[in-house]
Nucleic acid binder design. Structure first.
Lengths: 213, 213
DNA sequence: CGTAAACTTGATCCAGTTCAAAGATGGTGG
DNA sequence: CCACCATCTTTGAACTGGATCAAGTTTACG
């Protein structure tokens, strides 16, 4: 089963209990999962694709707050803190995900500490990620943020590396808190530091040099 | 006892267990509690004063990530996600706080769901707060962020209100992701919209007008 | 009261947004 | 398999919000 990150950390019984209440479904690109302010009744687990979670300002501009990919849980903070969704979620591309009724999850987690633990871990990671995004925004320039993203995503010994971006550049821009144009310019400035980009394919010639930017 | 927010939500037994392992202490202003990267062994609860949690960039600039006040728990995400502190914490003014050994907290939380629940709630709130800060930074100008802060802190019917800032302006600036100069300029621009500031004392003449900024 | 720290104000500078338009990509049906 | 079209991306130019640096000014507190 695909929601491995969730289920693999659970004992068989808890995993079974969760499987029992899971509803698997697919979403076309741009489909909205929920909107900020709506009553929260579902916990999601991304199986494939990417879900963008963002906030709106009064005149409709959007700011991405987190980008969830395969294995990620969306809405964990609502399991116990109930109430309403605090942001809007939208499929960034065709995606599949598992839905769990929040009330039932609450009930199972109350009985089974291993589930509560998995949820706490997910929440902790999300908090750490939010904090680094915040600090990143405030401390680093666009090329620095992009460099850091590239380093995190070839996470290596220091040898040259290459990989495919897992999603569109405009999505990456949003995740990094940039307008697409700014991301584009950042890439072209990094070209002078051993970064080659063709479509979604990225080559990093010298990770050490990137780290020094 | 002062750590009310923590203890009041616990059953007597859990509260007693936590009291038993608590160590109360005071900190002078500017004292460091822990640094990013250090092994995490303590959970903190602020009893009085304010603790600034921030990240550093390579050349020493700081970005505040959260400001914790009376009743707040610091380090909850480490209870289960163990490991190391992911940011640095410093007393922003003379403060008192309770320290709890993380291993022991882990052990108690494993036994007592009510403690686990309190921790999850704290974590959820912190995540929601981090997300709004992130979106706020990305969507709003300095005067807008300040206006929002003022509204949140007189949270009222729409009548004129006044209150005392709970800490120095430079701290507030950091919390809002601004340089102190930018906060100062924001205040003086808000003067034209019914906001009067003298020292730490703030008057908001027309909350409705602020909301429209 | 006097001194150190906090705050304000002014001037300059720069990163990143916005708007506009050209250029690349990739998925689709013929 | 190729051509086509919508969508995404890049590039350019102008603008702007906020950072930074440098003085002054006020505040708090011993």
């Amino acid at each position: 089963m695909l929601s491995s990150r969730l289920l693999s950390q659970l004992g068989v019984e808890s995993a079974a209990a969760m499987m029992e209440i899971a509803a698997i479904g697919t979403l076309p690109a741009r489909q909205i999962l929920f909107r900020e302010g709506e009553a929260a009744d579902t916990l999601f687990c991304v199986l494939s694709g990417y879900i963008r979670v963002y906030k709106l300002d009064p005149d409709g501009r959007e700011a991405d707050v987190e980008l969830y990919g395969p294995g990620d849980l969306i809405g964990v903070s609502l399991v116990f803190d109930g109430g309403r969704y605090t942001a809007t979620a939208q499929a960034a591309e065709p995606s599949t995900l598992a839905r769990f009724d929040l009330k039932r999850v609450r009930e199972i987690a109350g009985r089974r500490p291993d589930l509560a633990l998995v949820l706490m871990n997910a929440l902790s990671e999300q908090l750490a990620s939010a904090y680094s995004n915040l600090a990143n925004d405030r401390l680093h320039t666009a090329p620095q943020r992009v460099a850091r993203y590239l380093l995190d995503n070839c996470a290596h010994d220091g040898k040259a590396a290459s990989f495919r971006l897992p999603y569109q550049k405009s999505l990456l821009a949003g995740k990094l808190g940039l307008a697409p144009e700014a991301l584009s310019r950042a890439f072209s400035m990094l070209r002078g530091h051993g970064v080659n980009v063709r479509g979604r394919f990225v080559q990093v010639e010298d990770p050490e040099a990137l780290r020094r930017i």
